[in-house]
Write a protein that binds this DNA or RNA. Structure first.
Lengths: 113, 113
DNA sequence: CGGGATCCATTGCGATACTG
DNA sequence: CAGTATCGCAATGGATCCCG
């Protein structure tokens, strides 16, 4: 599902409009590994406040990147998982992961000198 | 050149720390096409203020992603180009571009229905 | 447990003016 | 041209309380 926003002319800007934000990228990273509960995300994303996490999750849900599933239990359980659209971002995160790994190798070398 | 910051354990977080920001990603996009002058970037990045552009350029320079070259002319000319480290981010931006293109196709289809 | 609602401090950022 | 400096507002985000 795609919700209309004004799409910028540049495709990169389009993508950046959806995930050009620290937390969204990290949320994506977490959810790539499978559905996550609110509390799990909150723990994993160190430093994020409940409010900001909620805001980002809502936004990503609106944009069709995430699927929110409520399990009618007591206590309530809510899971966030990747939609098909969200899953199509996997290569982007994968690239960032690979880049980060290489960067850390470089940083390690630079340190030992 | 790599400047030390505290590197997070997660490689994705490492990358996000350097470019997990709307403007930096768009600056990267612009500079991928070759060296750009300050004014060119300012025009291309619609909506950015001079201050924020300067701040981001400085930050990216500190992080070793960009190279800043001053030409001792009158009027002064300053060019920003990709360092080797910055250039290694090309695949990430490329992915985002491809994703944006596909997304726009989807959006177009959804509209015509 | 997973939020919604408030209130408030902090900051980000735009606008403007000035300079080498 | 490519900045730096300053000011002041608006928005972001943190903390807290409450609820289904």
């Amino acid at each position: 599902m795609i919700v209309k926003k004004d799409l910028p002319a540049c495709p990169v800007a389009t993508t950046v409009g959806l995930i050009g934000n620290k937390w969204k990228l990290l949320i994506l990273r977490d959810v790539l590994g499978g559905a996550k509960r609110f509390g799990e995300l909150h723990k994993s994303l160190e430093g994020i406040s409940q409010k900001v996490l909620t805001d980002n999750l809502r936004s990503m849900e609106e944009d069709g990147l995430l699927t929110r599933t409520v399990f009618p239990e007591v206590p309530p359980r809510v899971e966030y998982s990747l939609s098909r659209l969200g899953d199509s971002m996997r290569p982007i995160i994968k690239n960032m992961e690979e880049w980060g790994l290489k960067y850390k190798e470089l940083a390690a070398k630079a340190t030992q000198e």
